[in-house]
Design a protein around this nucleic acid. Sequence first.
DNA 1: GAGCACTGC
Length: 769
Amino acid sequence: MSDLRSSKRISAEADDSSRKKARKDNDMDEDESYNPYLAHRQQGNGKSHHGVPSADSPFAGFQPRKTTAEQHSKVENLSDNAFTGQPHSQKYFQILETRRDLPVHKQRQEFLEKYHSTQILVFVGETGSGKTTQIPQYVVYDELPNLSGKMVACTQPRRVAAMSVAQRVADEMDVKLGEEVGYSIRFEDMTGPKTMLKYMTDGMLLREAMHDHEMSRYGCIILDEAHERTLATDILMALLKQIAARRPDLKIIIMSATLDAQKFQRYFNDAPLLAVPGRTHPVEIFYTPEPERDYVEAAIRTVLQIHASEPEGDILLFLTGEDEIEDACRKISMEADELQREVDAGPLVVYPLYGTLPPQQQQRIFDKAPPPLRKGGKPGRKCIVSTNIAETSLTIDGIVYVVDPGFSKQKIYNPRIRVESLLVSPISKASAQQRAGRAGRTKPGKCFRLYTEKAFKKELIEATYPEILRSNLANTVLELKKLGVEDLVHFDLMDPPAPETMMRALEELNYLACLDDDGELTTLGGLASEFPLDPALAVMLISSPEFYCSNEILSITSLLSVPQIFVRPANNRKRADEMKSHFAHPDGDHLTLLNAYHAFKGQSVNDSHGAKQWCHEHFLSFRHLSSADNVRAQLKRIMETHGLELVSTPFEDKNYYNNIRRALLSGFFMQVAMKESSGKVYRTVKDDQAVLIHPSTVLRTEYDWVLYNEFVLTSKQYIRTCTGIRPEWLMEIAPTYYDLETFDDGDVKRSLMRAAEKKRRKAAMKSDR
DNA sequence: GAGCACTGC
C-alpha cells in the first residue's frame, strides 16, 4: 500500500511553488517578445538592437508577429535569398510556383491574422493541404528567428517524416539542410547555429524539455499530427499548456486532422481554429449487408471480386499481423492465377507490408502494377496486404480500392497484472475514415467495408483510445518527474489515465528506488531518466558497475532494446534453431544474447563486410545487431557523461556469469517467477500469475527460479527471455521487495524462507571457522 | 513447442 500513501501525498501538494520557481528562472520579459536586455544574444545581419529589421535589410518594414502575406510574398519573390543573401536558384522559383498552388496558400493572410490574435492556435488540414511544409515557413517569416534568436520547432511522430519534410522545406527555402532548416531525431542532430526552423520527433522535444523546462530556445512550437495522440504528443500538449501560462511570448500551434478539432480547442481554453480543405478525391463507401463471420476469408473474396470486375486501379487490404498477411497473400495469388485461366482476368501481383519486413521488401510496394498479359488484354494490378502501417506511416499512390475488414492489433495494458499485450480489436470510426481516404489520393476511389453500416455507426468508437490510456506509465511518470511536474494527479492531461495505472507506475518506481516514499525523484531516479530506456533497464545499467560487469550489462541492455536478433524463417526453422544453439548458454537467454553479440562483434572486427554474410549464415539479424550496436554507443556516452564506470569481471573468473545474472536482478527483481511443485508451470512472484516459459528459450537446466524480461499474452501466458537465478540473491539484492513480512503464506514465501535459512547457516559456518 | 500492430527517446 506504500504506493497509495505516497501518491496521495503527491497530489496534496499544490504546484504553486514550482510555478513561482519557474517564473523566477524564466528570463523572458513577460509582456514583450523582444526584450532589449536580451539584445546581446541576438546574432545575424541587418537588424537593430530591438530585434526589428534595419532599413537596409530585405525584411525592412517587417514587424515581427505583425507581418502580412503580401510582405512575405515580396521577399519570396526577390532574386536573392533574404535569409542567406545568396542568389535564388532556378529550382527555387519552380517550387515556389507549386507552393502557391497548394490549398493552404490561399489562406496565408487569414492564417497570419489568426496567428497574431492568439497564443495558441488549432489548425486543421486534411491530407494534401500542404500544412506540414507551409505553415512552419509562414511562421518563420512572421517570427524572424534570425533576428529574435528563438527557433521555430515542428514535431512529428516519426523519424522518417521529420527527416523527409525537413529536406523538402530546405529545398523550398533554397537553403542547405542542417543550416537554416534542419531536423533533430535520435542518433542524428542535423541542425546548426544558423537553424531557424527545426523539424523533430515529438520524443526528441520531450527529451530537450527535461533539461530546459521552459523550452526557452523556441519562440513557436508546432505539434503536427496531434490527432495521432502518441504518448509524447499528449505529454507535450499538457506541458505546453502549463508553459504557455508562464511564457506569454511562446506561441503554440496544434495541427491535426479534422475529427478531433473541437476537443483540442476545448482543451486549450477555447483556442481559435483555422481549417483548410485538403486535396483529395471522393471515395465511395460500400458496406456488407450482413456481418461477416470470417473476416480474412471475406477479405480475400472481396479482393478477387474487385480484380475480376472493377476497372483499373490498385488494391489495398488491411489485415492485422504478419502471419495473417503472409497467409492471405498466398491465397490471393493462387486464386488470382485461377481467375486468369478461367475468366481471362489481368495479372495480379500481391505484396505483403508490415513493419518487421526488411526495408528492401517494403520498397517493392512502390513497383508499378504489371502490364497486360498480351496486347489488348485486361490491365494488370497490384494488391498490397498491409497492417496499420499503411494507415499512417506509409502512403502509396495509385490505390483506388481499399478493403477494410475493420480490425487491427492494438496494445492494451492491464494494470492489475502489470502486463501490456497486443489484441486484435475493432478499429475506430476515425481509423475507418483514414483507411477509406487511402483510396482517393490520385483519383476517385472505392472502399469496401466488411461490416454493416449499422455496426459502423453504433459499434465503432469515435477515435482510437490515445496511447496514454493503453500503456504502462512507469517510464512516463519518471519523465514527468524529471520534467519538473510536481503534482501528477492534477497534471492536466487531455485524457487522464486510470488512477490504478498511475498507482502501479508510482509503486514500480518506488520499488526501483527512482522515487522515494514521498514520491520525490531520487538521485537514482534522476540518473535513470537520462537514459532512453524503461526504468528497470536504466536501473540495471546504473547498478551494473557494482557487480563488476557494466560492459556486459550495457550490451545486454542494448540487445533488449532492439527487435529480436535471432531470425527464424518459416521454411527453415530447424536450421535456425540449430544455429541458435551454438550461442546457447545453459543459464539463460540473456547470456545467450550476449554470446551472439560477442560473436558478431568478433566477426565485425575481423571483416566488417563479411559480417553481413556471417549473420545470414547464422540466422542472426544484421540489421538489428547493428542497431543494438548503435544503441550501445549512445548509452555508453550517457554513462561516461555521468561518471558510470565501464568494467568487466575477467572472463576466467568463476563469477563472470554469476555477476551478470545478479546485475540483471538489480533491475528485474520484480519480474521473477518460481516453479510450481509439479510440472512446468511457474508462478510470478507477488502478482501470482501462472505462466509458462516461452518455447523459444534456451534454458535447459531445471531452474526453480527465473527472472524474465517480458510477459507475453498470446494463446497462453508466457514469460520470454528468461535467466535462471538463485532465491538467496533476491533478498540480498532487493531486500525491500523481498521483505518476507510482506508476503502471503504459500509456496513462494516458504521457498524464500528456506533460502534465507540456508544462507544464514552458511554465514554462521563461515564465521565459526 | 510459439508469433512481433506501430512509433519514439
